[in-house]
Structures are given as structure tokens and as C-alpha cells.
Nucleic acid binder design. Structure first.
Lengths: 246, 246
DNA sequence: GCAAAAGTGTTATGCCTACACCCATGC
DNA sequence: GCATGGGTGTAGGCATAACACTTTTGC
């Protein structure tokens, strides 16, 4: 993304809602627009203008790769924001014009959402090179541009998806996790508190959770058994849902 | 959409997947690219390039209004198609360049889907002024550009939506309909055959179906009772779905 | 009277919900 | 030994799934 500015299309951008989970809270990766802690600084979603004749999807991939160093992460299109007045603040407009050296009118932005297994090893890199950091989703109140709206849409879709494609939850969990972790992530995303006996009973029926016969270590309570998510079994054993709701 | 071509943004278009229902089959509104029945003719989705600084949504509305004369129809964003090679056929590229007098590179297209109560009164108009006609979705095999893929996506989303927002089904039905109509539309969209006793039992629980005490007329069998969909009751009586699937 | 589609009830099964206590560990 | 979170079973109610015959109309 260091090519000559003339190649950028001043009409189209991609923005990424990057979700993570730290075993307690749902997190989102945000960038400090000004790169420092000036009073005027505002957080924004990672994103980029798109070069002419380039795939939108490819660009979303690129943004993520540059930001986190990660490849092959879960990434899916969310929604396209195309109102004429999305860049209403002068401050936002100036920031874009300065950053990309283009004069803009309206920018149509296609938003993607991504699910990341948070790995503390690359946090320092993210922060140094992109001023990117994880924030609790629940504590975010405003963002630059219309990015808060995009985040809201991301949450909405995440909630919907989780109900039917539990794989969404496991994309956020590390390789080894406890059943409690699964419940916590469901609760963090849906906002519903589940009865733990019933929740575990249901998970118990899932063929795709392989117990590792291994326990948590160094916790000051009964250590939890750890599980692994078996993608293959997941896709092979899922049954069609024929239900509908009135 | 008859303004000077220079105002069009050669990067962004909207395309509409317009669904209808004729009490038997799920239908889609398609346009004959060439306006006549030449051998080379291919069907496409209704759509348009978007003018600079105009809302995407507004444009989708406009396309529909021009096409059907209808206002305030159900219209929702579907997906944005942005691969670099979506206009792979020379024939398609030439058609676009000729129609809009612009030279194009890649076009990012935001697709919308719309649900229409088919009214035979405006069919002639649609056909004369836009070469638009209803086709059975199940008999469509190919379309111009990547429009078949867009249709497929539309169907996929329609299926998903119907399960949780039954309102989708009633957008396609006329004011007065029989319970059999409801079942047929569910079957047409989901591809599942429902047991009619169970299906009706479930519908019987819905508060939003008001019986009109009126019967079908002129049918060579036991006439069905007619119902009306009560939007207000629908939104007031729907209960939250807390379920999730493993 | 016959063809064609509308309409109707019961039973078995499985899923969801609600609910309270013991267990293993670190300090 | 105590604080902390992990882990467990049962019973009642409700929704689903499977299944076949009668009714009303037009011709």
C-alpha cells in the first residue's frame, strides 16, 4: 500500500471490523488516527482506499496482513456503506485527503469483519507500526467517520451468525480452550446469559469438540478440561436446520 | 437516469434482484439486454451505474421505481461484488461502454434484493419501456456478466432470512392470501416440503394473521379462507429467539 | 359423481428450561 | 481451610414429526 497515490480509486475503500477474544471480553482492533495521544485523536477501523482494478476481497486481506502479520484469517464481507454524506466532519475529510493525497467526494466503503485468535506475541508490532490496539467492544462509544455504525452492523451480523454457525465462536478461541471459554464467548457476543448446565449439555452433543485429556494449569480453582475444535467433523456432522420461526 | 453521462461514476453500480411470487412459483424480474429477440440476447438484472455523490440506496430505489413504477417496496442490500475480473466477456464490456458512453475498468457492484407483490396491471408497462419480464427463478440457468452469481447470493440470503423473519414471505404475497399460499411460498423459497397439518398448526399460533371471513371464489375445489398480514401485530408479538445450534 | 385442493387431531419423541450442590486447585 | 470457578442430573412442559381421511366446490 505504498504505491503511487494516483493509482488509488478515490471512490472505494474497505474497512475491517476485527474481532478478538481475550477469554473474558469481546475485543476490537482499532487504530489511533493521529498516531499519538493528542487531544484531537480519534479511533478508527483499519482500512484503505482500493486501487483501481483490484479485488475488494484481496484488499481486505491486505489490510489485515499488514496490520497483524496474519494470513488466512477468517474474513467475510459485512455490508457496503454508501450514503452521500458519510464523511460529514471536515476533520475526517481532511485526514483522508492528507493521508492519501487525493481529493475526495464521497467514498463508498465496503466493510469486512474478521475473527482473530488474539496472540499477545504480535501486539507490540501492531502497536508500533500501525498504532493498532485491542479495545473492549463494550467500552467503545464513538469512532471516527461512520465507523461506529459499521461496528454496530458488525456486531449485529456476528450475533446472527453465531446462532447458526457456531464455527464463528471457535475462530475467536485459541487452539485449546475450556467449555467455560465457549460459554463466555457466546455470552459476550449474544448478550444472553446461559444456564451453564444446559449449555454444557448442548455442547456435549457436538461431535466436533475433542477433549484433549489435558487440564488447565496454575489456576486457583478446579482446573478445566481442555478441548480442541475439529473442523472436519464440524462440516461432516452438522445437520440441516429445517425450522422456521413464526 | 437520463442525465449527462459524465456525471456517472465508472466505478460503482447497483444491481437489483427483484423477487416476485405468482401463487405457484418464485419469480425474478429480468431485462433483455438487447431489447429484442436477437440470437445474441442475454438476460440481466435491472441496475445502473451510480452518479457521483449519490446514495447507493437511493439509486437502488430509483432503479426499481423506474422499472416498476412502484415506490416504498421492500428493498435491502445483499452483497457487494468487487472482483477485478467480473466483466470478463468482451461482449458485456462493450454493452456497458455503449450504454453509458464511459470507458470502464472494473465495476464494483452493490447488489440489492427486492420483494414485490406481482401486479399484472403494470406488466405491460414494464415490458414496453424496459423489456423487463418475470421469469421463474428455477428455470434461470445463465445471465449476463456475473449476474447469475448475484441471483444465487440473493436466493441464499432470501432462504436464510425467511427462517427468522417470516415477514419476508408476506412481502411477496398479495393483500389477501390463503394459508396454502403461505406454505407454497415457503416451499418455493426453502426448497423444503412441509407437512401441511404441521405447517398450518404453526401458522395458527401466529398472532399476525387475521382471518378475513372471506373465501376464494370460482375455484373448482373447496374454497380456501383468506387472511391478511397484520404488520403491527407482527412487530408487537414477535418473541426473541434465544436458541443457538451446535 | 368425480376431480381437486382445503382442512383437520393424535401420539411419540426429543429439546428446552429451571434448579442446587459437590469438586479440585492455589494460596 | 477458604476462596474460586469447574463440573454434574432430573423432571415438566412444549414444539416437532409422522401419519390419513373428510369437506367443499366446479364441472
Amino acid at each position: 500500500m505504498s504505491d503511487a497515490v494516483a493509482q488509488y480509486n478515490p471512490s472505494i475503500s474497505v474497512d475491517c471490523v476485527v474481532f478478538g477474544f481475550d477469554s473474558k471480553n469481546l475485543k476490537i482492533l482499532l487504530i489511533d488516527q493521529n498516531g499519538d495521544s493528542l487531544n484531537d485523536s480519534k479511533l478508527k477501523l483499519p482500512g484503505s482506499l482500493v486501487r483501481k482494478n483490484r479485488d475488494l476481497d484481496e484488499y481486505a486481506d491486505l489490510v489485515l496482513k499488514e496490520l497483524t502479520g496474519l494470513d488466512n484469517v477468517f474474513l467475510r464481507q459485512l455490508y457496503t456503506f454508501g450514503s452521500a454524506d458519510r464523511i460529514s466532519l471536515k476533520q475526517d475529510r481532511e485526514w483522508i485527503e492528507k493521508t492519501y493525497s487525493v481529493s475526495i467526494r464521497r467514498i463508498v466503503s465496503t466493510a469486512y469483519y474478521s475473527l482473530i485468535k488474539i496472540d499477545h506475541s504480535n501486539e507490540e508490532l501492531m502497536e508500533r507500526s500501525h498504532n493498532a490496539r485491542w479495545y473492549n467492544v463494550s467500552s467503545v462509544r464513538t469512532l471516527a467517520l461512520d465507523h461506529y455504525r459499521i461496528l454496530t452492523k458488525g456486531l449485529e451480523v456476528l450475533r446472527m451468525e453465531l446462532r447458526f454457525n457456531p464455527i464463528i465462536g471457535f475462530e475467536l478461541l485459541p487452539e485449546k480452550f475450556s467449555l467455560r471459554n465457549v460459554q463466555t464467548i457466546y455470552e459476550a457476543i449474544t448478550g444472553i446469559n446461559y444456564d451453564n448446565r444446559n449449555f454444557r449439555k448442548k455442547l456435549g452433543q457436538a461431535k466436533y469438540l475433542t477433549p484433549l485429556g489435558e487440564k488447565q494449569k496454575g489456576v486457583a480453582h478446579k482446573p478445566a478440561l481442555l478441548y480442541r475444535f475439529d473442523k472436519e467433523k464440524y462440516f461432516n456432522t452438522r445437520k440441516e436446520i429445517n425450522l422456521f420461526y413464526i
